[in-house]
Design a protein around this nucleic acid. Structure first.
Lengths: 241, 241
DNA sequence: CGTATTATTGATATCTATCAATTCCTGTGG
DNA sequence: CCACAGGAATTGATAGATATCAATAATACG
């Protein structure tokens, strides 16, 4: 079931969208050129530095965004400062919660991020008019729910070593969604502290596990951020699959 | 925004639904009497013993259900047997994943459970016809996603004591959604092993933490399953809020 | 009642966190 | 291009929390 619509005549497509990498992906993929035009009238593209906050944990969102490129981290914090990253969002994910007053999580650019944003009321009206759009939203939400539950297993039942391997596998598969090779090289989208906050560990434990995997030849650490995995199936084994 | 429709004339309502506790709740609340009639032609009520499996982790679901009463636990298992409960579902939650081939989780009756089930294709056709129904589904999915992320914080960053307190609080609030009192007594819907699998702990640790809370006067354990909480705010403090 | 299951309690082992140095990158200015 | 500063990451020593293994106690059930 392919929801994407290809524009036969580019002239129908709004200027802003014409060069957009996500034109046919994510929620925009569900829109007709005419609807896209409507939306694009109110939308704006922004580039965000790593660390920029997009959404506060208990603020009411006034705008929604499509991620064009980069990685956004969603996190929750306890009163005493303990933090847990509850999800990573990649292009072309949709960012924001229609019909929900509070967000419950804060969203922050992990890497440099390009987004296309539009005001809350515009998208909500369009959703009311277009079942197709709401369907797309349900699809993404179901996917996020599956990912959240997968990660609950990781957080609750895996050892530190398995957790770190699971994280590397997650990044590797998202960086190269349809990779067929055994070997991949990729850039980690975040610091050791962030990785620890995603895995429910400390920075030191993450570091030690990375070192261990390096010594065992499962990974090669090019520099702090670049990692090479010579054999994905060995990494997969380490992740507990 | 109240999605429920009250039937002015009961005569419109199908016999099966007339006495149903969930008639105006969950997905059924979004349906008109005539649509309800359509659905009820293919639906059947079942009562399930504790421990009955509703959905297998990697099986394709052929039917969907509304929970009328009781608690259903959703869980994931690793190859070596480690288990993690990734969610609890209470009435009037909807059980099943439209548009998704695999379930990814297994569902099992934690307590005795009453459900109202209908075949996959019936509900999927109705969803196509009724945006309202899909909206309801999106709402529930968003709620489940929020709950999953809350629990990720619990699993990743809370201590054993905080985890057990969080669990008791979860059950207390679901058993009595609009309780105003300080004090509540309720029945735990599952065994110590299950609680441990939900919290990412061992049975022994759960037991020790319960004993500790009992000695500290935060809870009173009537018997293995019955728990009394004299002061919910003290429990709340223990949960890390 | 007596038996089987479930839960508690105890002793010890193991894993991860914490605290404390280094060491390694990265980026900047000479 | 090199030296240096500051942050990020690694490594080491130790403490603390939870798991594991084992025994006992309580509860549910026939």
């Amino acid at each position: 079931m392919d929801m994407q619509r290809k524009d036969v005549h580019n002239s129908d497509t709004p200027v802003l969208c014409r060069a957009c990498e996500s034109r046919h992906r994510g929620v925009c993929g569900a829109l007709l050129p005419e609807q896209l035009l409507q939306l694009s009238k109110h939308s704006s593209r922004r580039e965000l530095e790593p660390g920029t906050e997009l959404i506060g944990e208990s603020t009411t969102a006034t705008s929604y965004s499509n991620i064009i490129s980069g990685v956004v981290k969603l996190s929750k914090m306890m009163a005493d400062g303990r933090q847990q990253i509850v999800g990573l969002q990649f292009a072309p994910d949709f960012l924001g919660r229609p019909f929900r007053a509070e967000n419950g999580v804060s969203a922050e650019a992990a890497t440099g991020v390009k987004v296309c944003s539009f005001p809350k009321h515009v998208i909500e009206r369009m959703i009311g008019d277009m079942p197709e759009l709401e369907h797309k939203l349900l699809e993404q939400t179901l996917t996020e729910l599956d990912e959240a539950r997968d990660w609950m297993l990781t957080l609750g039942r895996k050892t530190a070593g398995e957790k770190v391997a699971s994280f590397l596998l997650l990044i590797a598969t998202h960086a190269f969604p349809d990779n067929e090779e055994d070997s991949v090289t990729f850039e980690l989208p975040m610091s050791r502290v962030d990785i620890a906050d995603f895995l429910g560990l400390t920075m030191e434990t993450v570091s030690r596990q990375l070192t261990k995997m390096r010594k065992d030849g499962v990974i090669h650490i090019v520099n702090n951020r670049q990692v090479e995995v010579p054999d994905l199936s060995r990494l997969s084994d380490r992740a507990g699959f």
